[in-house]
Design a protein around this nucleic acid. Sequence first.
RNA 1: GGCGGAGUAGCUCAGCUGGUUAGAGCAGAGGAAUCAUAAUCCUUGUGUCGGGAGUUCAAAUCUCUCCUUCGCUACCA
Length: 522
Amino acid sequence: MSTKPQFYLTTAISYPNGAPHIGHAYELIASDAIARFKRLDGYDVFFLTGTDEHGQKMLQTAQKEGIEVRELADRNAANFKSMATALNASNDDFIRTTEERHRLSCQAIWKRMEEAGDIYLATYAGWYSVRDEAYYTEAETTVGTDHVRRGPQGTPVEWVEEESYFFRLSRFEQPLLKHYQDHPDFIGPDERRNEITSFVKSGLKDLSVSRTAFDWGIPVPGNPKHVMYVWVDALTNYLTATGFPDEQAERQHFWPANVHIIGKDIVRFHTVYWPAFLLSAGLPLPQRVFGHGFLFNRGEKMSKSVGNVIDPFALASHYGVDQLRYFFLREVPFGQDGNYSHEAIVTRINADLANDLGNLAQRSLSMIAKNLEGKAPQLQNLLPQDEAILALADALPEKCRHLMQNFALHQILAEIWRVVAEANRYFATEEPWIIRKTDQARFEVILAVTSEVLRAVAIMAQPVMPVACAKLLDLLGVPDTSRDFSHVGVKGRLDGGRMLPAPSGLFPRYVEEDTSAQDTTA
RNA sequence: GGCGGAGUAGCUCAGCUGGUUAGAGCAGAGGAAUCAUAAUCCUUGUGUCGGGAGUUCAAAUCUCUCCUUCGCUACCA
């Protein structure tokens, strides 16, 4: 086991009854940036993502397509897996809830909850709409003038009773409230904590945690007529991946997770049900749950009927993976909803990446190539303005680390780009292209300072743009072993004289191919 | 209905516990420079800080009220 501090983070697992969409991509990209950040900051990271493959919807989709549900799961899970690859995610594991290890884990946590006396067999009754295939509470139904009771969708409902296991969620109302109070960071962002707290305060009912209507799920131990309610099944994946219940498992020490990164729509499952299950099973709770926002296409929610569903594979190949990652994380305050559009993506790519950073690298590195025969200049004889810009760059790890405590990914990027902007001002003010004619030594210092700032920027931006930053670090002649955050600043200063490779463009400007192609995201 | 957010420049948003002429980025306008991916740098905003009332020496920042908008209000995931 590593002596480094450990950090375990997860995405939600995706429900693969369809193709991955932009929301999946966003969550994965953000989580990956956090994972990479923590690795570069000296943590032993375990980053998990995967697919949640059980439940009635999978069954229905398979039926519709005329294939076996297993086949559907295999096919679509493979899609999600390849999305992770396409987006350059650095997940250490990819869990599928149909795996044997997960069955063992779910049945183990179930038994623990049962032994704790929190699971009992009873009858689940409710108003069921065959058309909607959903249960509704009495309050959600209305009786029309024709004396027919209907659900919210206007479809007729009937009273159905089904044998079901229940989880004594009601018992956990006070323990949960106490936990929220004692651990104010448990639910983030703050708005979500308020919502959940008021939800729990309004009272918790026991939860039906098994189904008999279908069998595509994990059998309840000792009563295989029942399969577990999908959320018992799904949430437990986080535990499964650490090897639970095997206490000798290699990754056993990663539990409890440091953070679950999830969409805001499933915060309740992660901050009410999940901790209640764990409390019942006598297991430690995850430290934090963070609900990110949704991405909207020009302010509109994506939907198949509107026809604005975007394929993340297409986006990544059209704009570039690093560019897409940068856009999502820079443009949208993490935790809030955000918008994306072709215009916004192009603006970010061209203004921030090509112009501000790419061009700065290009103009400075090509000066080194042309005037210094590709030999890196020595950082020495610094003037106050040199010290000032270096101090800004050197301060980045601490600032970013602080911002990362709240997963403020957009602010981290803003902070880094503040340094880039300052470096551009520095470069323009120092006018190395003029100094070169009169003062060769000073010319070299300016380039050395600029290179040094670029080195810090490249190191800090790696979590978001791993490929481009690696390329920039290559161009700067930074050894592979000197690229973590501890190398920003004095400790990582490189000696002059090292030979740099021939500079080449970092971020090409995005140029519209033709007007008809503008509608990639429309 | 209940609870909780939000409404600040053309656009996206910062503005913590109230205090000098309300900020940033993008877009727009003018200029400088020419090393560089026609990139960069400088200058440039007469904004009823949603409406109204109140507290205060002083409010975008506190209180009340109204308007608009969004989220949560349990077993599809």
